[in-house]
């Protein structure tokens, strides 16, 4: 099976290790991965800040860049939700404003092919045991868009539970937002920080070594708070845990 990796701009620029981990993991599972180089940003920050028109060219670009792939796999619930939920809305609005049906068609065509990584693993490949080994204690924060917009449910947890050596500890208040929220983090820094501090307090209360998530943007916010406070918990994307094996401990993965 050949899939396109929609890595997202945040991962490309700031978390290349997550991208490498996705490639390693998918190839290990026999998937042929392509990274179409024309991809940049899905436009979520623009759209969610009120710049719908500025989002339209990015949506068109996404549809063009990922044309022809059976699946477009992304290690971000939030960006997957942008494509799946908001692209069709962009199309509908364009139609309502009589500015053409092309965007809507492109959006509706791309949306159902776009899947989040854990969805792809569990639903498309039908695996929960991906052959990973990660001898650490881990707690999992389900980011809001994955949880509520995509309905990822317990897919990430099922994948983590199947990792050898991994001890999963339940995160208290797991379903509460971490306070990132894209530009919310800078438009409302006081509330965003208060939410983030409560989230890391809960994470610390588990005693876990790793705070795992499926969205690096949330982990960037939580990681920034953790580092500022010199806290020992390490934020880590789920792909990097699932990519780790006894033999292949990339530099991204913590020393055993």
């Amino acid at each position: 099976m050949r899939v396109a990796l929609f890595l997202t701009c945040v991962n490309d620029a700031l978390y290349p290790d997550t991208g490498r981990a996705v490639v390693t993991l998918l190839e290990r599972l026999g998937v042929d991965v392509d990274f179409p180089a024309g991809q940049t940003c899905c436009g979520q920050p623009q759209y969610n800040t009120g710049y719908r028109r500025e989002t339209e060219p990015l949506a068109r670009r996404m549809a063009e860049v990922f044309a022809g792939y059976e699946y477009v796999v992304t290690p971000s619930g939030s960006c997957a939700a942008m494509v799946r939920d908001n692209y069709p809305r962009l199309g509908a609005r364009a139609r309502a404003e009589a500015s053409g049906t092309e965007l809507g068609r492109a959006a509706e065509e791309l949306a159902p092919r776009t899947v989040e990584l854990t969805e792809f693993l569990v639903d498309v490949l039908g695996v929960t045991d991906v052959g990973a080994y990660f001898p650490h204690t881990v707690t999992y924060h389900p980011s809001c868009h994955g949880l509520r917009l995509l309905g990822l449910g317990d897919r990430p947890l099922r994948l983590l539970r199947a990792v050898r050596g991994l001890t999963l500890i339940e995160l208290p208040g797991a379903e509460e937002c971490c306070g990132f929220g894209g530009t919310f983090a800078v438009k409302n820094p006081a509330v965003s920080t208060a939410m983030g501090l409560d989230k890391i307090r809960n994470a610390l209360s588990t005693g876990a070594e790793v705070l795992c998530g499926a969205d690096n943007s949330c982990l960037m916010h939580l990681g920034g708070l953790l580092r500022r406070q010199d806290r020992p918990v390490r934020p880590l994307h789920i792909a990097e845990i699932l990519a780790a094996t006894e033999h292949e401990r990339t530099e991204t993965v913590m020393p055993a």
């Binding site: 969610n48 809001c144 509520r148 379903e175 929220g181 894209g182 919310f184």
Partner: peptide
């Protein structure tokens, strides 16, 4: 309208 992280709860 910006007083939300759009968490959807």
């Amino acid at each position: 309208p910006y007083a939300s992280s759009l968490c959807g709860a």
